[in-house]
Design a protein around this nucleic acid. Structure first.
Lengths: 343, 343
DNA sequence: TAGGGTACCGAAAAGGGTTTCGGTCCTTTC
DNA sequence: GAAAGGACCGAAACCCTTTTCGGTACCCTA
């Protein structure tokens, strides 16, 4: 770690006192020298810097935190077992906080309320400056309450309490975006294989799809068929769409996994994609979207941006400008082979 | 947070001093009362507890850490963008540390050495008790060096320095396990579609497969065909296996994604799985392994257990019993429909 | 009633860093 | 030569909790 080696640095890390002693000054002077304050002569400063380097001195953030009043840490609470959302969101937050400035505690509550409370206690004990709560469903989740001493931002799954601050994916816009793309490439007979109808995500996407179809003067082919988020349902749903007999030239699938299932069945039936039927889906989950034949055009929900926004909202709240309510992050269309031949 | 509400708890969290003041005792007594020490009368203790509850008091772990000398935190360094490994490993570590006892800082270095150094500086500044370094490849990675003041454990990707402590997946055992299962269900003509040959994982699995075949007195059908970790390669590889002309009744695929590609092609060619050819793969990546038709029999590398072991090794090192060298975690066979009809 | 014992409580220091404020020493100017 | 000013440095307080150790008050016994 230290640039020009030779330091012992075994055992306990060096303290400012040791640096000061080695440099032959007081801790006050050493502190000022290291922090670029103006009360130190150039020669003294250099002596301190050399001493700090020799000892591989790293200021103890715990002590700094106690003085400054803020710890420079944030807690990220999740119960997302697969880590599908949490990692991108965490990376976005890291970006916004500035790497090295703020560190993030990641805790997985595993859908367990007791474990969650446990983690919150621990995080508050460590005096985190804020809390980011990531849900794995889009459904609103129970609020942590308002008696917490730090700002809380809910991400992906909004808080059921409107007075809280939430950042969510804009599923309605995503639904519109999907249909607009299909219409843009000339499709007119659009069907929809939905996910689990108990999820707000499924309902919102359906609403967006309906609105965009209406805007284009079109009517959806068949009902939105609800099922689960699985590939198996994608196969079943696509089967139902074909069996209904109505001609179809595009299918919107509520997730990449559903789309994979649908592609699978269409291939079995000899239906060409995108020639006969274009397929578009949501999530843009890397390996799923790019592993298929053809690759999936998909709507990306910009998780990283959601994390960034969450961090910004925590900053704002700390600065005394809380922003209650729910903010939606705009999704992004990623075009691949399942809707266009060229791509 | 506080059980019977009514507390203000806005602004800065309460301090022990405030609790003591409210209870009419000194901070020393308050501390003893809250920590169950024996130097306090029952009535005084109760008064302190009531005061603490009224103020939603949470002891400041930062101050405790400064006294105790250890922060009760651990840094987990990753550059695993998809979070495929990191989250299970983190959960395993949480388990071993005991939820609430130890909190984990998660940092993503994004394959960037500068960012990595940055994060390490920050973590050491926060006086983490240990460091867990998770690699996304199985290839050995550059050591962080030995001049760090805390124990370091490398997970998944071992350190290239033998004096470091590493926990890795046992890819050789995994290869053996796959073949043993196939042999156990009566397969004798086994082919292998390998992953990227620059990965140690691919080489080790190949070694394990070879060893188990030899043990069973069998010879592999065709060479191990190397490619990438993608579904596309799985299709290409399976095509090559069929085109080679030699009869085959089982294929080992180096990842679930490769297996998905292989399944895809076999289905195109009208080959029945597992009737004509059984397929087995590695990783047991949930949605990939269970989304296919049939579902994939796969070797699970027990990431969670790797995290647990890493935590234990850090504990041991802190207790003065460092365990240099590399430890391999035994994999686990998960049987599904791609090798057995019943399952 | 005095002495010893016990139970309980509080003052103080420690842990590492930052900041304020007072002090020292050197330089400059009249 | 003396006073004023400036540049630099250090003592001490502070953040919050824990722990040691000394002290007080009370009770019991002789």
């Amino acid at each position: 770690m230290n640039s020009h080696g030779g330091a012992p640095s075994r055992g306990k890390p060096a303290t400012l006192r040791q640096v000061a002693e080695l440099a032959g000054v007081s801790t006050a002077t050493a502190s000022k020298a290291l922090n670029g304050r103006q009360q130190v002569s150039a020669t003294t400063r250099q002596r301190v810097l050399d001493a700090a380097d020799r000892l591989s001195f790293t200021p103890n953030s715990l002590a700094q935190a106690m003085l400054h009043g803020s710890s420079g840490t944030v807690g990220l609470l999740t119960h997302d077992l697969e880590g599908r959302f949490s990692i991108p969101i965490l990376m976005g937050a890291e970006d916004a906080f500035g790497a090295g400035q703020t560190s993030v505690f990641l805790c997985d509550s595993r859908e367990d309320a007791i474990r969650e409370r446990h983690h919150i206690r621990a995080l508050l004990g460590r005096r985190v400056d804020g809390l980011i709560v990531v849900g794995s469903q889009t459904n609103p989740r129970r609020s942590l309450g308002h008696d917490l001493p730090v700002p809380v931002v809910y991400v992906y799954a909004p808080s059921s309490d409107e007075r809280d601050t939430s950042v969510i994916a804009d599923n309605v816009a995503a639904g519109r975006l999907a249909v607009q793309h299909l219409v843009g490439i000339g499709r007119r007979r659009i069907a929809h294989i939905a996910g689990d109808p108990t999820y707000a995500a499924a309902r919102d996407r359906e609403a967006g799809i309906g609105a965009a179809l209406a805007d284009a003067g079109l009517t959806q082919v068949g009902p939105s068929r609800s099922g689960s988020w699985s590939e198996a349902w994608g196969r079943t749903g696509a089967h139902a769409v074909l069996e209904a007999g109505e001609p179809v030239d595009a299918i919107v699938c509520d997730s990449d996994q559903i789309a994979r299932g649908a592609l699978d069945l269409l291939r079995d039936r000899g239906v060409r994609v995108p020639g006969d039927i274009a397929v578009i889906s949501f999530d843009n989950w890397g390996p799923f979207a790019t592993g298929s034949r053809p690759q999936l055009t998909s709507i990306d929900f910009n998780f990283q941006q959601m994390g960034r926004r969450a961090a910004e909202l925590i900053f704002a709240a700390l600065a005394g400008e809380p922003a209650a309510g729910t903010q939606a992050i705009a999704p992004r269309l990623v075009i691949r082979g399942s809707t266009t031949v060229g791509a």
